[in-house]
């Protein structure tokens, strides 16, 4: 049997930004020219970088942002269903981050204030189009809804930390961030 050796199978990666600011994705792009050798090792499925709308079977899912509405939950669950392992990337995915600052307010008060009482904003009442995802009572980090395998803290995580995590995962090492790469701000 002399079948040709199969080409090294690329790691299939999906990424998304839920209740986040895309800052983590920007930081991802800050790995700069390292993205070129990286693309020899991974291929992107659903991602803001590819504009694919739904994620298929993947090895790795990278989630930026927390959960502030129903759509965030649906996307997260789709990722969990399709990805062998999930990474929570950045402060919002890990602890709710900036969007969670609304958690000490009652959502009803927020909606009322924004859409009904605040001058200049109160046109048309609270949107109720079925196309729009409903906001959750509170913002939640993603580990409260699905199991998360790895966490990458930072706001955003530095490009070097993202690089370290990816290269660790590709090499089959348990990811570990040393001093300087691990930070929460």
């Amino acid at each position: 049997m002399n079948a040709p050796a199969p080409a090294v199978k690329k790691l299939r990666v999906a990424t998304t930004s839920l209740a986040g600011c895309f800052g983590c994705h920007m930081s991802f792009l800050d790995i700069d020219e390292r993205i070129i050798p990286l693309l020899d090792l991974i291929e992107f499925d659903r991602s803001p970088l590819t504009d694919i709308k739904h994620c298929g079977p993947c090895d790795l899912g990278i989630i930026e942002g927390g959960l502030c509405n129903a759509e965030n939950v649906h996307v997260l669950r789709e990722f969990r269903k399709n990805c062998k392992f999930l990474v929570a990337m950045g402060a919002c995915a890990i602890n709710g981050g900036l969007p969670a600052q609304r958690n000490h307010l009652d959502l009803r008060d927020v909606l009322e204030e924004v859409y009904q009482t605040e001058a200049g904003l109160s046109h048309g009442g609270i949107p109720n189009d079925p196309e729009l995802p409903l906001p959750l009572n509170q913002v939640h980090p993603i580990h409260e809804v699905v199991k998360i395998d790895y966490f990458l803290p930072g706001c955003p995580p530095p490009a070097d930390a993202i690089w370290k995590l990816l290269t660790d995962l590709l090499a089959g090492r348990t990811p570990s961030l040393g001093h300087g790469l691990m930070h929460y701000d």
Binding site: L111, E112, N128, L134, P135, L136, H140, V145
Partner: peptide
């Protein structure tokens, strides 16, 4: 999860499947 949409359902009056 479903209860976490309760306040938004109340404020929007929605009860469709997406809600």
């Amino acid at each position: 999860l479903d209860a976490a949409l309760s306040e938004a359902r109340q404020m929007t009056g929605r009860d469709d499947a997406g809600a």
